[in-house]
């Protein structure tokens, strides 16, 4: 399905920076994926917030993530959610389970939408946002990237 989209239409709605997520977004300026870990529980959580959702602890450390995981589920969207998204072409919205055990949403890029599968190994890739941050997306993991 093709949708006529003016050339200056932003492709994406860019995410705001909510309290508690500043270190996450700061790291994306260097295309680094970091996760908040609760020091009391010794567990990561997502999405980032000011307190640990397991124990309400506020001692939180930001640690690098492997950036690899598997597709937990997905959908191919044949009509864009917002006017400019994907310039009218079908795209994949997926939930990815990282090796660390947390789940986050992302688009699957770097392969035709219909090639996406539940359980498919993926690794993080980045798309530049207008303010120097980057948005994490995922692409099929190549053999040489697999751990």
């Amino acid at each position: 399905m093709s949708t006529k989209v003016p050339a200056d239409t932003p492709l994406r709605m860019e995410p705001p920076i909510s309290p508690g997520a500043e270190p996450f977004w700061e790291a994306t300026r260097e295309c680094r994926l970091v996760l908040p870990w609760c020091l009391a529980c010794e567990r990561p959580f997502f999405y980032p917030r000011e307190v640990c959702p397991l124990c309400l602890g506020t001692a939180i450390a930001w640690r690098p993530a492997t950036g690899t995981g598997v597709v937990y589920s997905f959908t191919i969207e044949n009509r864009p959610a917002t006017a400019g998204f994907s310039m009218g072409k079908p795209y994949v919205v997926a939930l990815v389970e990282l090796d660390e055990g947390v789940r986050l949403m992302g688009n699957i890029v770097g392969c035709p939408p219909e090639k996406t599968e539940v359980g498919m190994p993926v690794s993080v890739t980045w798309e530049a946002l207008s303010d120097g941050r980057h948005l994490p997306l995922f692409e099929p993991r190549r053999e040489e990237n697999a751990r």
Binding site: R12, Y47, N107
Partner: peptide
């Protein structure tokens, strides 16, 4: 605005509401 996890962590990916979340449940 800020403090809305839907806006921070899902809508940037073009999540079509309300269908897409249900579609992901069906896929799984």
């Amino acid at each position: 605005g800020v403090n809305n996890p839907l806006v921070d962590w899902e809508l940037p990916y073009g999540l079509r509401l309300p269908m897409a979340p249900y579609a992901m449940a069906a896929t799984r």
